[in-house]
Design a protein around this nucleic acid. Structure first.
Length: 307
DNA sequence: ATCCAGGCTCCTG
DNA sequence: CAGGAGCATGGA
């Protein structure tokens, strides 16, 4: 249950904003291992300027009311910026309703107000994407949980103990075997450690990625071993808050698009990109909408997972 | 056992 | 540039 928020900062999302759908999606997503999702509350530990802190975000009391957020001892502006980034609250999604494509419209119609929820750092988004490559998500989630439990810091709070995502510094020190012990394949162990080292050594500057174009960000990410186009696009979608990223190589997306456009099979990557031209410049939103359509399909109804 | 799962790298035509 | 082999894991 949500505790009273003294000292909270309010953040007003641009409507439509479906907090319930966003939390529902996180709740049912296997990838949600560090977050604690309650009825109307999102909590997780994050690094703020290098220091661990607990972020709590409570949903609006009324449909279009503000979110209420706390982050130990941080300035309201910092809290605002973080919440706004994580939940993409400032994005104007109204143009999505005008996209003239029946298959897209049906997918988006089922999730107006939804947002591509961000992971707090490019590092976390990248590591998670690599962990998830080519394996089923449930297993990927277990790998992530083991990874965090073994190498992430713990944060004690009045609301309980939270695990932080491991820092690049902590992972850069590891040998491959340490991650293989957590059921990472040798390749993935190498890739994740390699990304951590790239960050620690300054070869990759995660913060700088926010300031460059999508193509430039893709190039820099793909220069890393283990990061192909799918992974880089996933990072744009989940870590950099880009609105127009399209992981067209994604099997789940290919499945959804194949169904939505009546192909009777998986759409090819080229087909996804071709249809995707009609969803620009909101291809990230199209992606999460189609992902959600898969979950709805599986569950026999709306309300299941996406990220 | 066989095929699949929210790919990547490297190598051929 | 397109396509395929080989790679690693656990699950259904």
């Amino acid at each position: 249950m949500s505790e009273p928020l003294s000292n909270s900062t309010s953040v007003s999302p641009r409507p439509p904003f479906a907090w319930g759908m966003i939390l529902g999606s996180l709740r049912s997503s296997p990838g949600t291992v560090l977050e604690r999702i309650d009825d109307d509350t999102y909590q997780r530990a994050v690094h703020v300027a290098g220091a661990p802190a607990l972020l709590t975000v409570v949903g609006p009391a009324s449909p279009e009311g503000p979110l209420s957020a706390t982050l130990d001892g941080c300035h309201p502006e910092v809290v605002q910026r973080l919440v706004s980034h994580l939940f993409q609250t400032a994005v104007d999604t109204s143009a999505l309703d005008a996209i003239d494509d029946p298959a897209f419209a049906q997918a988006w119609g089922a999730c107006r107000g939804f947002r591509p929820v961000q992971l707090p750092s490019v590092w976390e988004a990248t590591a998670w994407a690599i962990i998830g490559q080519q394996i089923n998500v449930a297993f990927a989630a277990r790998c992530k949980a083991a990874f965090c439990a073994a190498h992430g810091q713990q944060l004690e709070t009045p609301s309980g103990t939270f695990t932080l995502f491991p820092t690049p510094e902590a992972i850069a020190r590891l040998e491959e075997a340490a991650l293989q012990a957590l059921q990472f394949s040798r390749q993935k162990a190498r890739y994740v450690i390699g990304v951590a080292r790239a960050i620690v050594e300054g070869v990759l500057e995660p913060d700088a990625l926010h300031a460059v174009t999508a193509d430039e960000a893709l190039d820099r990410l793909m220069a890393l071993k283990g990061v192909g186009r799918w992974t880089a696009e996933y990072v744009l979608l989940r870590g950099l808050g880009h609105q127009d990223a399209l992981p067209a190589g994604d099997v789940a997306l290919q499945k959804a698009v194949g169904r939505a456009y009546g192909l009777g099979r998986l759409a090819t990557e080229a087909e996804v990109r071709a249809y995707g031209q009609g969803w620009a410049p909101y291809r990230s939103y199209a992606t999460i909408a189609f992902w959600r359509s898969n979950a709805a399909q599986r569950a026999g109804g709306p309300g299941a997972s996406a990220p």
